[in-house]
């Protein structure tokens, strides 16, 4: 069966907090809420697409390594949310450059 470490509800709330923090900061950094329509081209950064994926992915790595720190992991959730929004806004194009050629 699936094992959820510690208190499942607390972890669930931490993920929700990380997602909300990431989306709010991404909107504050003037990323658009939704990708451009039609939704087929994920290179465009937006508050709803890569940002929460990074937030919950990185947070899940911390929790899998049993790193909870203080307040049952809540502080890590907030820090990861802030980090992922800043990462998507400023570092994303440097780490994952836009491929030349390829699809079209």
């Amino acid at each position: 069966m699936i094992s959820i470490i510690a208190n499942g509800f607390q972890l669930f709330m931490n993920y929700i907090v990380a997602i909300i923090v990431a989306i709010v900061l991404a909107l504050a950094l003037k990323l658009p809420l939704l990708p451009e329509k039609p939704i087929r081209f994920s290179w465009t950064k937006s508050a709803l697409f890569p940002t929460p994926v990074f937030a919950i992915g990185i947070l899940a790595i911390f929790y899998s390594l049993n790193v909870f720190w203080i307040y049952k992991g809540l502080l890590i959730a907030i820090i990861v949310g802030l980090f992922s929004a800043i990462f998507v806004k400023y570092l994303f194009d440097y780490v994952f450059p836009n491929p030349q050629g390829g699809s079209e």
């Binding site: 699936i2 094992s3 959820i4 470490i5 993920y15 994920s42 890569p50 994926v53 990074f54 919950i56 992915g57 990185i58 947070l59 899940a60 790595i61 929790y63 899998s64 994952f96 491929p99 390829g102 699809s103």
Partner: peptide, 20 residues
């Protein structure tokens, strides 16, 4: 556990970028 599924989503996203 459930965390693994969330990590998988992040890895698939990075894989998408690597595959252009």
């Amino acid at each position: 556990g459930i965390q693994g599924g969330l990590i998988a989503a992040l890895l698939v996203y990075i894989g998408n970028r690597l595959c252009a």
